[in-house]
Structures are given as structure tokens and as C-alpha cells.
Computed example of a mutant assay.
Amino acid sequence: MNSKIDPTIFKAYDIRGIYPAQLNEETIYKIAKGIFTFFVKKLNLSRAPRLVLSYDGRTSTPMLVKEARKALLESGAEITEIGMSTTPAFYFSLTHYDCDAGLQVSASHNPKEYNGIKFAFNTGGKVTKIGRDTGMDEVRELTLAEKFISLGSKGRVKRNEDVFEDQVENAFRLVQYPTIKKLKVVADPGNAVGALYLEALFKKLPCELIKMNFKIDGNFPAHQPDPLQFETLVDLRKKVLEEKADLGIAPDGDGDRIFFINEKGDVIQASLITALVARELLQKQPREKIVVDVRNTFNVEAAVKKYGGVLVVTRVGHALITETMKKENALFAGENSGHYFFRETG
């Protein structure tokens, strides 16, 4: 197995490559050490960093996580391992469990041959997602040069398996436990980890959940878990009509993007979802800022203006849009790709 690291796997918003040609047990070991070194230098801590470790359900993930965990422990990290998880649950864990930073081993919505790493740090309850403008180049250089920091003592792991229950309870608290109608909902997470959050969420909802492709299977036998490719939504749209359901839900491979189907079987534009959420929020909190990427202004601009908000337009990319949110202290943001962000949850 070639342990030489391909520098092209360090992308604009994550680390991502084909397993095992580009990302394998040897390379992720070094990359995890590079990320640890970046965190220690960036956060300037006088103690061992507290890191979240989580991962998706791809077939290569167990082997990669084993080596990442080993590297972090050798470096001296105190790890809170939340297990198989979505990326939003990973970000939530950083602040909810008072951790400094963390890694999510996942290749999101990409085909089964891929795997990768998303990573972020927490400062004062604000999550910074690492991308090209927030530290990715530094991590790449540290890793390629193997200029690693070790704290001289072995770290430790504690496991927390309550993240989805905690995340759902936090979401209900933020929206003040609203009364929700008994809806019939069809959901298709594409055999990916979005199923785990949906299971936890619908335990708390008075709704009928009709499940499609809920069994975690990193081979993605039904379809690639990428709802931005509308051909992956064909079966879900049909099922919504067959069941006479009120709504269809399709999260992506790591659960950080989501598309909705209406009762007519039509895909709802992401810009319309952003506009609807902005309307609801601005009615309670007028004059707040709403962030959109340059592709997502349709529908949103009119809603923000009507309900007394301030529209902020930013470049494309979830790391960029969340940095803009922090800078502007915005209430909410939405991307054309189906990413949505709330101030309270980073």
C-alpha cells in the first residue's frame, strides 16, 4: 500500500479521496496527526485538546477510524467518540459536549469508493469548519512535511452514544416545543447515516414515518445518497404519491444536506425552503440577517424584504457561508445545495 500522500485530496472544504488508492490506513494516520498538530497550534491550549471523533457508514470507514483514533491517542488527545453519526451531529457535539475540535470520517454524498475527513474547531461556542480559507492549506503542509506535535503522554477515549437524542431535544428546545400536526412522511436516506437522525427525530414527532432505504449499507445499494442529483429522488417521489403522503425527505450521505418533496411529488427548490424558514424566523425576530450563496437569492430576497430582514449574499461553499454567518452574526443561512444553518447550532 502506497503511504505517499496525494496533495490533491486536500479540497476546498474537506479532505477526500478514493480508498485505498488516495486515502488509506497509512495516509489517514499521518493526516490525523497533521490535523491534531494544526488544532494544538491554532487553539494555543495549555492542556490536552478535547476532540470529538465520529464517522459514517462506508465500508472503508472502520479501518480508517481505527488508524485515526490511534494517531490522535498517540498525540495526546482526549477523545469523545460519538460513533456512527451525521456531520450536523458532529458539529453539535463540539459545542454541546464542550470539546475544542474534532474530526468526522466521511465522504458525504460521494460514491462508495470515496472516503474523507471533515474537521472543525470550537471557540466560545462558535464552530469554525476547516476549508481553504480557514486552515486547510496549513494542514496539508504540516501533513506532507510530517511536522507533527505530540504532547508526550497518551490520550484517552470516552464514548457517548446519546448524541442524536441530545441533538433532537436541543432542536425542540430552540423552537420552543411547537405543536406539530400528525403528518404522513416518507423518508429516504439512501442507506446512509441520515437514517440515524431521522429515527431519533420521529420518535419525538406525532407523525407516521414510512421508511425507504434505512438500513446502513456503505455500498449504497439503492442509489448514491446525493439528493442534488434529482434522479436519486425518483423512487421517493413515487412513494410520496402512492402513500398519499404530506411530505418526502431526502438527506444526503452524511446528513448535512436535505431536499424535500411536496404532496404532489415535486422536488421543492432549496431557495424556497430558505425563504420559508427565513419568513418564520423573521416574524419573531425582525431586522435579523439572513445569509444566502450567490446561487440561492431567488425567492429569498423577496421574503427577507417583506418580513423586515437584511439579506447578505456570499460565495458558494458551506465553510464560507458559516464564516459569513459568524462575521455577520446572522440568524439563518441557506445554500442552493440543500445546506441550512442556524445561528444557535453553528
Rank of each mutant, 00 (worst) to 15 (best):
C207V: 04
M63A: 15
V277G: 05
E328K: 05
R140C: 11
I28V: 13
F119E: 06
V277R: 02
T95H: 11
I210T: 08
L103H: 09
E208L: 06
I321W: 01
I249N: 00
A145C: 12
L45D: 09
F119Y: 11
S3V: 12
E165F: 12
P111W: 00
E328I: 09
R295I: 10
G57H: 05
N160D: 14
F298N: 15
I117C: 08
V52G: 12
H318V: 06
G338Q: 05
G131F: 03
I216W: 01
S54K: 12
R295D: 10
G135Y: 02
E328N: 08
F148G: 04
V185S: 02
L311I: 07
L142F: 06
D166S: 09
T232F: 02
G102M: 13
M63L: 15
D137E: 15
L23I: 10
F230P: 10
M212H: 03
F38M: 09
I31G: 02
P286N: 10
A250N: 01
S150E: 14
A89I: 04
F332V: 07
R343T: 15
K264M: 08
Y307E: 12
V127Y: 09
R287E: 15
G135E: 07
L94Y: 04
E146W: 11
F36T: 12
G338K: 02
S54I: 01
L174C: 13
N44H: 08
L282E: 06
Y55H: 14
V316T: 11
V292S: 08
V316G: 03
L282T: 14
H96R: 14
T143D: 08
Q285A: 15
I79Q: 06
E242L: 15
R159W: 12
G102D: 07
S85E: 04
I15V: 14
A200I: 10
A278S: 15
F39H: 12
D246M: 08
G190F: 01
R69A: 12
A171N: 14
I210P: 06
R295Y: 02
G102Y: 03
T27G: 07
M136C: 03
K66S: 13
F214S: 00
E169N: 15
V300T: 08
R159I: 10
R16A: 00
V52M: 14
H339N: 07
F220Q: 03
G116K: 07
V310L: 02
